[in-house]
Structures are given as structure tokens and as C-alpha cells.
């Protein structure tokens, strides 16, 4: 066994105990901050400053959570609802608009298709965050500043989504299926709804999960829009919770943990899809 690994591809080489120990350490480092967030959110004030650090959860979670939810100026409960609304609307819209456009780019013939697809790919590289100042002025002209609409609108479509959907539909939906449905008199919308959508469920799951995570974690733009309002998103509420002269960490981390739980649940349910989405994205780009 000692030297056989040399002439083989790594994929064919079994992991040694060292591989597993190393991966275990990596996993420990990955999980510890999140786990410790949970520990502190269940503890009293003393636990935060304890040396060596406390690593076992206490029994104060409900007390801490209750304090977070009843703080007047933070609007934490409302912020969670807002985050759900913002992330869900963005996710559903992205899935619908991107799969619709992806279908057109993959299966329909129209003038300028290839040129327009190139435009989509080019916009992939646009760091739109750099336009936030002007975006704020645009939102002002629309009268949306300080509303959830302003947070939602820029996230409704994504160039990555269109491109990802186009690639997937091109492979997953046979041309013959689309054509025979058209011959039978089905309109494009019906083809999209009855043939394309059912065939691309795995891609919808991947794009949906990635989009939801991104929308939930977004901070800068929601902060600009909703800071100081009565209806922040949970990330903005968290920054509010952590500001001020006297910060109570068990309370802050209880809030942080509550705002992280939905994503942990998503990782447990859809981890496989998220991994696949990231790995497929790499191959394509």
C-alpha cells in the first residue's frame, strides 16, 4: 500500500487516516464559530468571557431569545418576516424570469438570439454593487427609497440565473419534445409550463437555494435602504442589535443564531443541491 498512490489518479486513491483527520480538523474549524454562536445564545453573561471558553450549551436560550424579540427599537420579529418576504419574492421571481429567458435562449429561434445571449454573459461580469449610489437615486425617483420594494427590485433577475438555466434547458429538454408539442398546437407558454418546467426541477432547486441564501445574507443594500426604519431585514436588525455603547453578547448572538437557523435548515435539506450547483457553476465558467 505504501507507494501505490503515486501512479494513480487522486480520485482512485483511497483516503488515509491522515486524510480523514485533516478533513475532520477542517470541519471543526468550519463549524465551531456557528456552534459557539449557539452556545453563547444559550448562556448567561459570564460564558462569553470564560477562559478556557465554554463549549457546552446552557439553558438560557428562551430567556435570551425573548429579550431579542421584545427589544423595542430593533423590530426583530418583523425583521425575520421581512427577510422571509424579501428572500422568497426574489427567489420566486428569479426562478420564473430566468427559466423563461433560459427557455427562449435555449429552444426558441428569434433574430438576435446569439447577440443577446452574449450580452447576458457580458453582464455576468458587471459588479452592480458599484452602482449603488446611482441606484439609490433611481429608487428615489421611483419613490421607493426606504421600502421593501427598493430591496427586492434589484434582485428579481440575475444574469447568472439566465445563463445557468439556458445551459441546463439546452441539455435537459429534447428539441423533438418541444417541436412535437408545437406541432400539436401548443403555444410557447404552454410548452414552458408543461414540458420545460417539469424537466428542469433539479436546476430550479439549485438556483432557488443559491438565490435564497444570497438574498437572506445581503447586508449593504438593505442597510442603506432600511436602516432606521420600523421594518428592517434581519441582517439590518442584527447590526442594530450589535450597535450602541453597551452590547450584551448573549443577546446579540441569540439574534444572530436565530437569523442563521433558516440557512442551516436549508443546508440540511438541500445541501446536496447547493454543492452540485456550486460545482456545476465552476465547470461552466
Amino acid at each position: 500500500m505504501t507507494k501505490t498512490y503515486i501512479n494513480r489518479a487522486p480520485q482512485d486513491t483511497g483516503g488515509t487516516w491522515l486524510t480523514y483527520v485533516s478533513l475532520g480538523v477542517v470541519l471543526l474549524f468550519s463549524a465551531f464559530p456557528v456552534y459557539w454562536m449557539f452556545v453563547i445564545s444559550t448562556s448567561t453573561d459570564e460564558a462569553v468571557a470564560q477562559i478556557p471558553p465554554s463549549v457546552l450549551p446552557g439553558g438560557e436560550f428562551w430567556t435570551n431569545a425573548n429579550e431579542v424579540f421584545t427589544l423595542n427599537e430593533v423590530f426583530f420579529a418583523a425583521s425575520l418576516i421581512n427577510s422571509v418576504i424579501v428572500s422568497s419574492v426574489i427567489t420566486l421571481a428569479t426562478l420564473f424570469f430566468c427559466s423563461l429567458a433560459g427557455f427562449a435562449f435555449a429552444k426558441l429561434r428569434f433574430r438576435g438570439r446569439n447577440a443577446l445571449l452574449v450580452v447576458v454573459v457580458l453582464t455576468l461580469t458587471v459588479p452592480s454593487q458599484l452602482g449603488i449610489v446611482a441606484l439609490y437615486i433611481v429608487m428615489g425617483k421611483l419613490g421607493w427609497n426606504g421600502t421593501l420594494l427598493a430591496v427586492i427590485a434589484p434582485g428579481l433577475v440575475s444574469a447568472f440565473g439566465v445563463f445557468y438555466m439556458r445551459q441546463f434547458i439546452a441539455h435537459a429538454v429534447p428539441d423533438e419534445l418541444v417541436e412535437s408539442a408545437r406541432i400539436d398546437g401548443a403555444l410557447n407558454m404552454r410548452v414552458y409550463w408543461n414540458i420545460v418546467l417539469p424537466a428542469i426541477r433539479p436546476a430550479l432547486a439549485v438556483l432557488g437555494l443559491l438565490t435564497f441564501v444570497m438574498a437572506w445574507n445581503d447586508f449593504q443594500w438593505p442597510l442603506i435602504q432600511l436602516n432606521g426604519t420600523d421594518f428592517p431585514t434581519s441582517m439590518v436588525a442584527l447590526s442594530d442589535l450589535a450597535s450602541g455603547n453597551y452590547v450584551i453578547y448573549r443577546r446579540v448572538l441569540a439574534g444572530a443564531f436565530i437569523a442563521t437557523v433558516p440557512l442551516i435548515v436549508l443546508l440540511l435539506i438541500g445541501g446536496r443541491q447547493i454543492v452540485r450547483g456550486i460545482m456545476e457553476g465552476a465547470v461552466k465558467s
Partner: peptide, 27 residues
């Protein structure tokens, strides 16, 4: 490499990617 629990390791190392930066930075 040929590993036991491939998916488990892959999902595990993605936990930081999913965790909101705002929350993890507080930790």
C-alpha cells in the same frame, strides 16, 4: 480521493459559505 461520506464532507465545508457574514462576524 476515494472517500467515505463524500457528500457529508462537501456539505460540511459549505457551512461557513451559508452562514450570514453579519452573524459570523459578531462571533
Amino acid at each position: 480521493r476515494k472517500l467515505r461520506g463524500t457528500t457529508f464532507w462537501r456539505i460540511g465545508i459549505l457551512l461557513p459559505y451559508l452562514t450570514p457574514v453579519v452573524a459570523s462576524t459578531l462571533v
